[in-house]
Simulated scan of single mutants.
Amino acid sequence: MKYIILLLICFTVQCGLAQDASTYESVTKTFQEDFNAQNIDAIFNMYTSEMQESMTKEGVSSFINGCYGQFGSIKNITFVETAEGVYSYKVKFDKTILTMDLQLSVNGKISTIQFQEL
């Protein structure tokens, strides 16, 4: 009986992690498409309400336009690792490669996004 309960717990945890991974994959794909299209409204709507309040639409516009102007379009986003709930990716732009740290809320909205040099 103990083994059955342990097996059920492991299965439940695996399903939760797989669902998180698919949500992150979907969000990164959508972010790449909207970034390359310079669709500021769509990117702003991907953020949590707290992020929207702290960054404002004008701030998001400056961030996206600045990144696009400096780095070019996103060619691909490759998953690297997960640490303490933050997913890290290698992002290849036209002109450079950066790391991106991404954290989503429980409803799949961006609560943290940060780009850094490798």
Rank of each mutant, 00 (worst) to 15 (best):
I5M: 05
S61Y: 03
C15D: 10
I113A: 06
S73E: 10
G66C: 04
Y89F: 12
I77P: 00
I40A: 11
D34G: 14
T48Y: 09
A83S: 08
G72C: 10
M51S: 07
F115P: 00
Y87A: 12
E50N: 15
T48S: 12
S105M: 02
F79I: 00
T12G: 02
F31W: 10
I110R: 07
G85L: 01
E33W: 06
S26K: 07
T23D: 15
N39L: 02
Y68S: 03
T99R: 06
K29Y: 01
I5F: 10
G108L: 13
L98I: 08
N39F: 09
N107F: 13
K90M: 08
Q52G: 12
L17A: 06
S111D: 04
F31T: 07
L118W: 13
D34C: 11
A18G: 00
F11N: 13
S49I: 13
S73H: 09
E81R: 06
N65P: 01
D94Y: 04
N76W: 08
S49N: 14
A83P: 04
F35N: 07
V80K: 03
S22C: 07
G69S: 12
N45A: 09
K109E: 13
N39Y: 09
N76S: 11
A18Q: 00
A37S: 10
I9R: 02
C10N: 06
I43T: 15
V27R: 05
F11S: 08
F31R: 03
I43E: 14
I40G: 03
D101N: 14
M46T: 00
Y87M: 14
A18P: 01
Q103I: 04
K95G: 08
F44Q: 06
Y47R: 03
G108M: 09
T56E: 15
K2I: 10
V91N: 09
V13F: 14
Q103T: 13
T48I: 03
Y89I: 04
D41F: 01
E53T: 12
T96D: 13
L98F: 11
T96Y: 05
T99L: 10
E84I: 11
K95V: 06
K29A: 03
F71C: 13
L8N: 08
T96W: 09
Q38P: 02
F44K: 03
C15P: 00
K109G: 10
K92Y: 14
C10F: 06
T99Y: 04
A37P: 02
T12H: 02
K90Y: 05
F71I: 11
I97Q: 14
K90S: 14
S105A: 05
K90N: 04
I74W: 03
V27S: 05
S88R: 08
Q114H: 13
Q70P: 09
E25V: 02
D94W: 01
G16K: 12
K2D: 13
E53F: 03
Q103W: 04
F31K: 11
F71R: 09
T56F: 04
F93I: 06
V27Q: 11
Q19L: 09
I43F: 15
E53R: 01
S61W: 05
S54N: 07
T48N: 09
K95I: 02
I77N: 00
K2V: 14
I4S: 12
F11H: 11
K57D: 01
Y87P: 01
A83H: 02
I64F: 15
M1Q: 15
T78C: 12
L8Q: 11
G72L: 06
T78H: 07
I4C: 02
I113L: 05
S26R: 08
T23V: 15
L118T: 02
